[in-house]
Simulated scan of single mutants.
Amino acid sequence: MDPDAIRAGSRVPHGGEPDRDVLDFSANTNPRTPDGVGDVYTAALEESRRYPDDDYLEYRAAAASFVGCEPEQVIPTPGGLAAIRLAMEQALEPGDEALVPYPSFGEYAREVRLQGATPRFVRYDELHELGPSVLEPCALAIVCTPNNPTGDAIAPDALETLVDRCGAADTTLLVDEAFLGFTDRPSAAELGRDHVIVARSLTKLFGLPGLRAGFAVARGERRDALATARRAWSLGTPAARVGAHCLRQDEFVRETREHVERERERMCEALEQRFDVHDSDAPYLLCDVGDRDVATVIADARAAGVAIRDATTFRALDSHVRVAVKDRAANDRLLGALGVGDADEGTVEPHEDD
């Protein structure tokens, strides 16, 4: 990272509610975790008296099988954001330009700036339309699929177009797939292109954001550079063991995808009684509150014991909130707090499908 950029940098806002008495819809994580996680963690904690095996063979094999690549192409990282930073450290030098989508994850621009590079913002849904005159001056381009906070995933043919154009321009393409596991779409890792780096997060899909486990996928010289730059023992033993266990839970993933799709459709129908809701492939919905005051909408929800995300912190959004898709009972609580549907705002009761 560039020392001058660090001194001039700042933090960016995120979702996540520290008050355990408030139902948190501001962070997009699975409310469920796979069976057996506790036992795996306990056993791994005992083994943490030794340093981890820095080869992470079991973890890399599970990750490779999950996304469709070879184990040696997997670079273990403590979360998806660590994979993003590692990719930028490899691809960017001070003075470089990077194409950053908007509205999208705020850490992209911050991480670009920390490398001493300059973000060049472009609409997230127009990236695949860019030609060589825009791509060639840029050392890096970033795509988020499904995009955060809008929720829509880039179409496979559009992604391939962007991959091809970045290759022709000699521009590294970073594909952030933090929420792709909630869909049945293939990973860009399957495309097998040397100029593409994929960043994955385990902790959202498997409901363990505090575990900090993720990985990057790369080939050729970029893979070698990432493997060299990666910190030694970059995953603790509990994170590596639990992560490998979760990545093998095919039935859990299938059930999660089905549940999220079902609940997202139900929530969207209710929320559209009051808000303009963006189409989504992700475990969250972006809502335009129109001429209502965003701060008031958030405060009213919180008064009912529910935290939602202020999406006006995303570039080009000035009247939006984002809500996660959780289990059915919690979702009913959210809908009641937002004054839509026929949900009871009182005690959360279990539903048959959860």
Rank of each mutant, 00 (worst) to 15 (best):
S104Q: 11
A343S: 07
D19N: 14
L285K: 00
G68D: 06
D152R: 14
C69H: 02
A8D: 12
P18F: 04
D184Y: 05
E107Q: 13
L159M: 15
A98C: 04
G9F: 00
A155T: 12
L174S: 08
L202S: 05
S65L: 09
R7D: 12
G192S: 06
C166L: 06
A307V: 02
V12L: 03
D54E: 13
G181Y: 04
A232G: 13
T313V: 15
A225V: 11
E89C: 07
R49L: 15
T172V: 15
P186G: 08
V100G: 07
A343L: 01
V294A: 07
T77M: 08
F275M: 06
A168Y: 07
P94H: 05
S65N: 15
K204H: 12
S26R: 01
G341H: 03
L226N: 02
D318Q: 05
R200Y: 03
D164K: 10
V163A: 05
R123Y: 06
L174P: 11
A307E: 11
Y124L: 10
R274N: 06
L114I: 09
G95Y: 01
L86I: 10
T296G: 10
E136K: 12
W233D: 14
A158H: 15
V289T: 12
R113N: 03
S319L: 01
T203N: 13
R315M: 07
D288V: 09
P78W: 04
E46I: 14
D2V: 09
V100D: 11
L202K: 01
L335H: 01
E261H: 01
R60C: 14
V175F: 09
A329H: 00
A91V: 11
F25R: 00
D157N: 11
A5Q: 04
A213R: 05
V253H: 02
Y41P: 02
E136F: 01
Y284V: 03
E46W: 09
A229R: 14
F105G: 02
T42G: 08
A199V: 14
L180H: 07
T172S: 03
R85I: 09
T172Q: 06
T42W: 01
Q73K: 00
A239P: 15
L211H: 07
A63C: 15
A227W: 07
R230M: 08
G181C: 04
R241V: 11
A139C: 07
L285P: 03
R322I: 09
P149K: 00
Q90N: 13
V37F: 07
R241H: 13
A178K: 02
A337F: 00
D288G: 11
A227G: 04
A155L: 14
V294M: 12
E177Y: 08
L335I: 02
V196H: 09
A109Q: 11
P76I: 09
N28V: 05
V289N: 10
C69F: 05
T347M: 06
S133K: 10
R254N: 12
L140S: 09
G116D: 14
E160Y: 10
P209V: 03
Q273G: 10
L211N: 04
A295Q: 15
A117Y: 09
T77I: 07
V134D: 13
A44P: 10
E221V: 11
A213K: 04
P34G: 05
I84W: 02
R241G: 06
A63E: 12
A303L: 11
R49W: 14
A282Y: 02
E269V: 13
L317T: 11
G79K: 05
P18Q: 04
A343V: 00
R309E: 14
F215Q: 13
L211E: 08
G9D: 15
